[in-house]
Design a protein around this nucleic acid. Structure first.
Length: 385
DNA sequence: TCTGGGGTCCTAGGACCC
DNA sequence: TCTGGGGTCCTAGGACCC
């Protein structure tokens, strides 16, 4: 049976959502002028999180440094993000999509897939998609694109066609005409590196990739990735719409310094900060971690990463921080200035039994108490907002 | 112009076990 | 004294996504 999958994508999500909020506060619509959302506009290192369509038309792109965008457009309006508001907008958006089909997979904060196979009985899928997009616009005030296809890959590719506020189809029968002429970079999972590799061997379009020899592709990118690229370029994708939200497999936090740092005191302070954040988040989600990793990034963007296993799964900030501190000299020579530092935990379990070791650090109770206070403070702060 | 922050998955080599 | 093959875990690095 032919499946009918929708991919719904909020147009310039963070920018649209900010625009809706500002409209409510009496501002004019920032979607109609060159505008962007960025982290901290005063930080030279901050980058653009989302750009309006007029900004994009000037060549301003997501992930571009703000300083560069300002050179392109000195009158660019820069606004900062509001995560709590974005979460609300996302929930409203997902809620409407779910009312069209409960078989929904949230792909990110502003994208989801729904399986409409059993909803599009008599009615034309495009008509239903139009209704969905208009309902979001009417009730929530922002626009979406809906891509329709017989699998997730095609639906996702379709939603990326002309924006904003559009519905597109990409059925298998349309692949040759609508997808094959596109540059290979437009295919999902083809990033910068893969594009370079493929084009250096003359594969420039998705159509050329679709017709490429699988053995040849395997030599280029490895067997697993080659098989997937080949399938996807031919418009095939068997993956189901996953309704179960997957549990997190890792947590991490990182900080980029406004200037590259060399002073161990500054670096330790940053490590302490990210350890507090990560440990708090795993405690909140009732996880304990057995792997602690940390990394440093240098000005040339090269990364040195080290990881280790803990004796027992832990959620104690001090334990995680100490592992990271132990790893730091293995990752960093102490001489090269550091641009960014990060800490992560993985190998997570929900083990709730507190492991009592005879040799447990006598300070452990004190550490746990410290964490309890930290969590309380953090909760209070969030409640105030 | 000079590049954030948070994730996932894959690969390849080495250790170690049977 | 020198040797195969398979399985699992760990580690570091790289690619991609939003």
């Amino acid at each position: 049976m032919k499946r009918i999958i929708f991919h719904i994508d909020v147009n310039s999500a963070f920018l649209s959502w900010t625009a809706v909020k500002m409209l409510g506060e009496g501002h004019s619509d920032i979607r109609l002028i060159p505008s962007v959302v960025s982290g901290d506009p005063s930080d030279r290192r901050s980058i653009i999180t989302a750009a309006s369509i007029p900004a994009k038309k000037l060549g301003i792109k997501t992930a571009q440094p703000v300083s560069m965008a300002l050179r392109t457009c000195p009158s660019l309006l820069i606004v900062s993000g509001d995560w709590a508001w974005y979460k609300q907008c996302s929930q409203g958006f997902i809620g409407i999509c779910r009312s069209y089909s409960p078989v929904l997979e949230q792909f990110s904060i502003d994208e989801c897939f729904i399986d409409m196979t059993f909803r599009c009985g008599k009615e034309d899928p495009v008509t239903i998609a139009m209704r969905l997009k208009d309902e979001v616009k009417g009730k929530l005030g922002f626009t979406v694109n809906v891509g329709i296809g017989s699998n997730k890959l095609l639906a996702k590719m379709a939603s990326d066609f002309e924006k904003p506020d559009k519905v597109h189809t990409l059925w298998e029968s349309e692949v040759e005409q609508k997808m094959w002429p596109l540059p290979v970079r437009d295919l999902l999972w083809v990033g910068k590196k893969t594009e370079e590799r493929l084009t250096s061997y003359g594969i420039r379009t998705i159509g050329q990739l679709a017709k490429a020899d699988l053995a040849f592709l395997t030599r280029l990118v490895g067997s697993k990735f080659a098989a997937q690229l080949h399938e996807n370029a031919n418009g095939r994708d068997r993956s189901p719409v996953e309704t179960e939200t997957q549990e997190a497999k890792s947590y991490s936090a990182e900080r980029t310094f406004s200037k590259d740092l060399l002073d161990p005191k500054d670096i330790d302070k940053a490590l302490f900060n990210v350890a507090c954040i990560v440990a708090h988040r795993i405690r909140k989600d009732k996880f304990r971690a057995s792997t602690v990793s940390m990394f440093v990034k240098y000005k040339d963007f090269s990364v040195s990463q080290k990881q280790c296993q803990t004796d027992i799964p832990t959620d104690v900030t001090a334990v995680i921080l100490n592992e990271a501190r132990r790893l730091l000299p293995e990752a960093w020579d102490g001489k090269t200035p550091i641009r960014q530092i990060g800490l992560g935990v993985s190998k997570l379990t929900h083990d709730s039994a507190i492991q009592m070791s005879l040799f447990e650090d006598p300070k452990m109770e004190y550490y746990r108490e410290w964490d309890r206070k930290y969590d309380e403070e953090k909760l209070k702060k969030n409640a105030d907002r």
